[in-house]
Write a protein that binds this DNA or RNA. Structure first.
Length: 153
DNA sequence: GCCAACGTTGGC
DNA sequence: GCCAACGTTGGC
């Protein structure tokens, strides 16, 4: 079992959208590092859901992988913003996974608090200027978030 | 293959 | 709106 953190702008796709959809596809990832992390995900892996680019960036809940990496359909659609003309069905460049909601925290855990808490030292997310939108999270850091916010904690 | 310029992400 | 980080592009 591995743990991950995924970022999304809530205006674009929020954790409430995932709740409504039940199962959501994590599409439009167009960074090789992030894609490689998507491909490393296993069914049942848990994800911290982080809202970025908003007033209070925060970890807002937990999701889980229900379908492992497969070709991201948005890369083949010329109408889609993530369209990649160099990607072919035979040799797709980009991947997506399907996730489902596990829990929305009653209180989001703001990035500012994560940065203040020494438990999270070394976490990719707290690195200044960290842009990686799909990143691995250590069990220790994952459990620390759970302890602070999850009803399971 | 090096590296400067530029664009994007995302926190503040 | 600013800026740090860093990926990408393109000249050489």
């Amino acid at each position: 079992m591995q743990y991950w953190l995924v970022k999304s702008e809530p205006d674009c796709y929020s954790i409430e959208d995932l709740k409504r959809e039940k199962v959501g596809s994590w599409t439009d990832v167009r960074s090789y590092q992030a894609r490689n992390n998507l491909r490393a995900m296993k069914k049942g892996d848990l994800l911290l859901f982080h809202h970025s680019g908003c007033a209070v960036p925060a970890v807002v809940g937990i999701a889980k992988v229900v379908k492992e990496a497969y070709p991201d359909p948005t890369q083949f659609d010329p109408k889609n913003e993530g369209y990649d003309e160099k990607s072919t069905v035979d040799n797709p460049r980009w991947s997506t996974v399907d996730v489902s909601l596990v829990e929305i925290f009653k209180e989001p855990l703001p990035l500012a608090e994560i940065k203040k808490n020494s438990v999270f030292t070394g976490m990719e997310l707290v690195k200044q200027g960290s842009r990686l939108s799909v990143q691995p999270v250590s069990e220790k850091h994952f459990n620390a978030v759970v302890k602070l916010r999850s009803k399971q904690g």
